[in-house]
Design a protein around this nucleic acid. Structure first.
Length: 301
DNA sequence: CTCCAGGGATGAT
DNA sequence: ATCATCCATGGA
């Protein structure tokens, strides 16, 4: 195996891959295996050094955005308690540059799903419809192109545990495959124009559009508001307010977090998700078993 | 078992 | 314009 070694200061590979922006990298040996576009990659980190196989330096630097001026970006965050905690916790976390379609498709499937399950759906789509590759003695699968998904039936996609999301993924895949939705060409659009195009796609609303803008189009001010971020805004920024509407959160975040709001958002998201006590609710008194609901008679699978 | 998850589309106020 | 409901699935 041919390895290349490069310097990558101010970067935390494991945290970046675990921060809920990409969903397919798997732990392998001392590092991870996955794909960057069609290229299978093995990559590991030792201190400030990255060792990788399967791609070239330019591909790695671009995908992991090693050129982003992370210190300056972090210094641009607003100076408040929640942001300072997140910034300290997320040192080395970078916003990657993902392929347009792969990112869009992944976030269409993300609706009302935990990160762990989005990973599961991504793997299922790859294994069933992607191209098999080998790297570091392991098999990896590329994310299926829009044209390949467009050939699938809704039932095939549902077999990847997509549920109601299958219909949206299929419809958007057809638009992308036909060229009616030309994702690459949209790179030249301004933020509002790009957001408008994305939101016109089936299964894409403001939240998914902002994720795709941030993670695939390098729009670093895009600020996705999911249930975690909404909770952070309510609890850390407006603890007195009785209720905050989507509109109020949007107005605040767009004006408060600045030109790199997307980075700030990702730091707040990752910090909240990794530190919020996930303790099972305190021994809630349980109903005794004699009130058990009558079960439907067993149905065949 | 219950609760919840990187929401969106639709129809009713 | 805001609000309620439904949509599937599996981890915790």
């Amino acid at each position: 195996m041919e390895f290349t070694e490069i310097s990558a200061p101010e970067f935390d590979l494991a945290m970046t891959l675990d921060s809920g922006q990409t969903f397919h990298w798997l732990a392998a040996d001392e590092g991870f295996v996955g794909t960057i576009g069609e290229t299978p990659i093995y990559i590991e980190q030792r201190g400030d050094q990255l060792r990788f196989a399967g791609g070239d330096e330019q591909l790695i630097r671009h995908y992991f955005a090693l050129d982003h001026p992370l210190a300056k970006i972090c210094a641009s965050f607003p100076d408040d308690a929640a942001m300072s905690e997140a910034r300290a916790f997320c040192r080395g976390l970078r916003i990657m540059r993902q392929p347009h379609w792969e990112c869009l498709a992944s976030f269409i499937t993300s609706s009302m799903k935990q990160v762990a399950h989005i990973r599961q759906m991504s793997q299922a789509l790859r294994r069933n419809f992607g191209e098999r590759k080998e790297i570091a003695g392991r098999e990896v699968f590329t994310f299926p192109a829009a044209a390949r998904i467009a050939q699938c039936s809704e039932a095939e996609l549902r077999r990847c545990a997509l549920g109601y999301r299958a219909k949206n993924l299929l419809a958007t895949a057809r638009l992308a495959a036909s060229g009616e939705a030309h994702l690459a060409a949209w790179s030249v659009l301004g933020d509002s124009g790009l957001r408008e195009r994305l939101c016109a796609l089936p299964g894409v609303g403001a939240k998914v559009a902002n994720c795709v803008m941030l993670f695939a189009y390098e729009r670093l001010s895009a600020f996705p508001i999911d249930v975690w971020i909404a909770r952070v805004l309510r609890e850390r920024y407006f603890p007195r307010r009785r209720k905050m509407t989507e509109r109020q959160m949007r107005t605040f975040s767009d004006s408060y977090f600045g030109a790199h709001g997307g980075y700030a958002q990702q730091y707040l998201f990752h910090h909240a998700r990794k530190t919020t006590a996930r303790t099972v609710k305190r021994s809630r008194p349980r109903k005794t078993a004699n009130e058990k609901q009558p079960r439907l008679s067993e149905v065949g699978s």
